[in-house]
Amino acid sequence: MNSPATLPESRLTLPAQAGAKHLPNSVLGMIIFIIAEIMFFAALMSAHTIARSSALGGLWPPPGQPRLPVERTAINTGVLLLSGVLLWLGNRYMSTTPKVGRRYVAGAIVSGITFVSMQGVEWVALLREGLTQTASTYGAFFYLIVGAHALHAVVAIVALTWVYVLMCLGRRLPAMFAATQIFWYFVVIVWPVIYLRVYL
């Protein structure tokens, strides 16, 4: 007896069942999660800013600590940004020519893995040069912030690969793909900010 047909017109248009305008659950959930993530990184960056400004003698990096590889990381930043662009292209082609779209997604995953591995190589070199978490707040903040980002990148790559494999097996997962994309864009966009604040 309570069929929606008896609803007044004003109540039919407003609520949740608004058809195409309706954001999928996973996309909305991911956006809300990203807000919490942005606050997490903002807190790390502001803590870093304060530590940097109150460094002993105003010297940053502290004397005796190795300099960060600015140029190599600039190239690496480019690799990560490229990965974001590839994923965006992959999403554009996915609806029309899924085969091409999947190829772009694979490219995004590979360049993402390249970014993380180059970061790992850089860490090993820096550790050899004596930049450790305990040596100074400079090193502590470097490993904390870049490590937190790397952790996010690894999780995002795993998720993206998982969605990619499922899509190659013929599953259609538009909402899940969209949510994973949002997470990867977050990882890509937050990195240049970190680069500008921590490396330069």
């Binding site: 609803l7 109540r11 039919l12 609520p15 949740a16 809300i32």
Partner: peptide, 13 residues
């Protein structure tokens, strides 16, 4: 948040 935004009964403004 997602449940309250997306899963409301029809008619619930």
């Amino acid at each position: 948040i997602v449940t309250a935004m997306n899963s409301r009964a029809p008619g619930m403004t």
